[in-house]
Design a protein around this nucleic acid. Structure first.
Lengths: 251, 251
DNA sequence: CGATGAATATCGGGA
DNA sequence: TCCCGATGTTCATCG
């Protein structure tokens, strides 16, 4: 089976000279292609923090939206990077291909200096990027709004993202006895941080509403850690086990 | 200028047949090479959540440590991925190259189905990966341990990462009047979450120590947001502006 | 293996 | 633009 012509743009050079590599990278940046450069290089970053990386073999990706990624043979995360909206540049310095990426606000600069270039490729890519994702906190919220009794019998949601001086409450409502209820949602097992978050909202609501009005705080998540459970008890907060999808909590 | 032979392994096919692509990807996985496959594809993920991605042109990277990345032409983050320690597999299905990546604990599966393959490359990469990074929270901690007066005159650090029922305090110490002090460090401007964190530690320490002993809580960061500042005041906590590097706080 | 919190976190929504 | 919180966060460290 032979691949048919498909209109996808592609330009590749194996083991190019540094000059050829520079020209191809520079052209690809200009034409809005996605570029990969693989070779032995050093990397320097200066900006929100600063870092240096000694010689090693890596894959550098330059995206047309201005993002830059330096990947080694290990790890899901790039060892160095630059966020979108940066300006990329390819140049020769001391006979080496040097790729630089820069932005302001904040001032950040990435420099990759190649001592050997294994391959340079430029791809003209287009993507609709219509990702459909399920199992998020949003799904959990909708599930509760559809079936409020999942929280408890008589629970009535009154607002989502209700503002307080401490931040927005995921779901604000009332229980069967018309007590105010703040619900904090998490799509996965939670630790102490989520308890602190809920506690801040409850405190803020108790200040906001009349001081004599009781405010219940309910954490909704598949499960909680021991420490979080203890913190909930200390603060008089409650926990309701629930998953975004309706599956069992697999902790 | 011509690149010299450098021992770096490289295997590339432009617009290969799906069968050729499958063979090359499978061999590269076996030999521990880093693989890139560029082409038009759909992506399905099922695991901690689930997602589907319709047809589009993307770059798929398979790392020898088991990580997988699907990158579009936009964004610093991959649109889909799989963490390290997954098992990669390349197969033909309905004449299409299909790349799959799987792991257990948790059960997660990624499937990329190519309808067109623009290029397949396999790179044999090695990397020492000796990244040196400055400007981290660790740097801020060391700066304070070296010069405790940066917190205030008379401050004495007694422990780092001191355990409490609510978590570990970054720096625990005493002030000039021998009051207990909990210090929470952040390398950058902080919001309400950091105040909640510090508050939990202070509460826990006040329970741990004798109830009559006052515990001061000090947040150390380049700057704070308005809301965080208000929360600090409400809880009787303090703020000391300080950067990891000693530079000025650029908020 | 789980828990905990840092990160050049990134990303999207809202004011 | 900044603030704020979610994320299939990932990652290192510690118990």
């Amino acid at each position: 089976m032979t691949a048919v012509e498909d209109g996808l743009r592609l330009e590749t050079r194996e083991r190019p000279s540094h000059g050829t590599a520079r020209d191809l990278v520079a052209e690809a940046i200009d034409t809005g292609a996605l570029v990969t450069v693989v070779g032995r290089c050093t990397v320097d970053y200066e900006g929100r923090a600063s870092s240096t990386l000694g010689p090693g073999e890596r894959l550098v990706m330059l995206k047309p939206d201005g993002a830059a990624l330096v990947h080694t043979d290990e790890g899901q995360q790039p060892v160095n990077w630059q966020p979108p909206d940066c300006d990329h540049e390819a140049r020769l310095a001391d006979g080496h291909l040097v790729v630089e990426s820069h932005r302001e606000t904040p001032e950040e600069h990435l420099r990759v200096d190649f001592e050997a270039v294994l391959e340079v490729s430029a791809y003209g890519l287009t993507d609709e990027r219509d990702l459909s994702l399920e199992g998020t906190e949003e799904d959990l919220r909708q599930r509760i709004l559809d079936e409020p009794h999942l929280i408890e019998e008589g629970f009535v949601p009154l607002a989502t993202e209700r503002g307080t001086p401490a931040g927005a409450v995921d779901i604000y409502g009332e229980d069967a006895e018309e007590r105010a209820v703040a619900v904090e949602l998490k799509r996965r097992r939670v630790g102490p941080d989520a308890v602190g978050q809920l506690g801040r909202y409850v405190d803020a609501l108790e200040r906001d509403l009349h001081a004599d009005r009781e405010v219940r705080g309910i954490l909704v998540a598949p499960s909680v850690t021991d420490r979080a459970s203890r913190l909930l008890a200390e603060r008089g907060l409650e926990f309701v086990p629930l998953t975004p999808t309706g599956g069992t909590a697999d902790d």
